[in-house]
């Protein structure tokens, strides 16, 4: 009784109406039958998609620069920042004549994200000094095999002629945050 929060347990006798259960059952039945005619809350997913937030964090994209060269330099900061340890990569050195393919002298020969491990937190995007990886509003599709969820460069790098729009996620607040990082070399 020190805190005055303890309550005495009262074993209440049920009234006659409660004992015969029927009034309670009838009122319950009336409630459920009303729900039979309510509008359904279900969204029939593949045909109909729920509206998602503008800053939705979905499937990743590895961006190319204006000339079509991959921005990623395989620094590994995204893999380090990833709390789910979903990202692995193998770095390689750019050879002569590949300047149109890779922007920096080092690039990712393989770059894999395990979509089953990924928690879509967006820390890789935050960590990236090269503005190479972004999360998009695309939803990772389902698969029957686990291997199918390991996305390589073939699925992650955006095609040259089909750029993925990531501007929606770059709200003023996000841009201001990135400004703080003073990525002067990216300007």
């Amino acid at each position: 009784m020190l805190t005055n929060r303890s309550k005495l347990v009262v074993k209440k006798e049920m009234t006659f109406a409660e004992k015969i259960y029927l009034p309670a059952i009838l009122s319950g039945v009336a409630i459920t039958i009303k729900h039979l005619f309510r509008r359904k809350a279900t969204v029939k997913y593949p045909e109909k998609q729920r509206e998602i937030s503008e800053v939705w964090r979905g499937q990743h994209v590895l961006k190319r620069d204006d000339k079509g060269a991959e921005r990623c330099t395989a620094c590994g900061l995204c893999a380090v920042s990833c709390p789910a340890e979903a990202i692995t990569m193998v770095a390689a050195e750019r050879k002569k004549g590949e300047e149109n393919l890779y922007r920096e002298e080092k690039y990712a020969a393989t770059y894999e994200i395990n979509m089953l491990r990924c928690i879509f937190c967006g820390l890789c995007e935050e960590a990236c000094p090269k503005e190479a990886i972004f999360l998009t509003d695309r939803i990772v599709s389902t698969d029957y095999e686990r291997n199918g969820f390991i996305y390589g460069k073939d699925k992650l790098v955006e095609p040259v002629n089909e750029r993925v729009d990531i501007s929606k996620r770059q709200t003023p607040a996000v841009l201001a945050f990135k400004q703080q990082k003073r990525l002067s070399h990216n300007k």
Partner: peptide, 13 residues
Amino acid sequence: KVAAFLQDRVGPD
């Protein structure tokens, strides 16, 4: 179906 409808769902479709 009845379970779904009473719970504002659609059920197997």
